[in-house]
Amino acid sequence: MKSIFQKIVNSASDVILDKHNETLLALTCILSEGHLLIEDVPGVGKTTLVQTLAKLLDFKFSRIQFTNDLLPSDIIGNSIYDPEKKEFKFFEGPLFSHLVLADELNRANPRTQSALLQAMEEFEVSQDKQTYSLPKPFILIATQNPKQQVGTFSLPESQLDRFLMALELNYANKDSELKIFQGSDARMAVKNLTTLVSKTEIIQHQENTRKVFISPLIAEYIYELLNFTRRNQSYPPLSTRSGLSLSKAAKAYAYIHDRDHVIPEDIQKVFVAVMGHRLGLSEGVKVGKKLAEEILQGTKVPV
């Protein structure tokens, strides 16, 4: 693993215990300029994870708590008339940050949810015929409650597809939980963290990630994985965009591990995270992950 990423993961795990793998995947997601969906019950450390990453990476962080009465302008911002200059002035909303935590996204009504769409896809927002670019890098980390929680609007398929990865955080293991109960406030620990890498460096890493090589064999492997769901009636067919996401994520994973080419293991490591929410759809990430495991098991690695 590249030493800088090793450091980041180590520092993060000091604050948020027993989430090594999730941190790594979140980092992968950031490097491949993708957005992250975290699905889990409240109170397992979703917010802490995001805050930790923001602090370590020197990202401007904002948090939007979604409720069913939240309006699009509440997150994008408002144009307000400036009587002195006799023009409308745009006041940026919380979306104009590097790392946006959209907490409990599925509590918002669909209209507000879809307002995020443009931001996620094009890294810009439109207000009153004006288009405003979001800061670079821009990463949206949304959390959602599992389906069975009351008062939720499930995310539509098109929106789910825009998240590069979906993670579950799960409860920490016993040792870690005991430590949590004994330890000091996590929020305080986050504040004490030192920034390890600058924004420009992250942008550089993102650019390098794009240059990681995907060999024909790997492309074939990705195709075989997608094709498995298309041939098989019992799986929701995976889109071409999902395949592209998979290759992006694998590139980042390979980059983190200091390689300039993707190997089948990279694909395997990120596959479940990338495909879980795409396969689970309205059933939830948990179901999707199980399906993703099955697909991995059933697909031959080309040599």
Partner: peptide, 22 residues
């Protein structure tokens, strides 16, 4: 790959289809 596979075959080891090289 065949070379390696042949070599491993003497210990009754076979690459699983869904197994990556590492």
């Amino acid at each position: 790959f065949n070379e390696i596979n042949n070599w491993a075959a003497q210990f009754d080891l076979q690459k699983k289809d869904n197994e990556g090289p590492v």
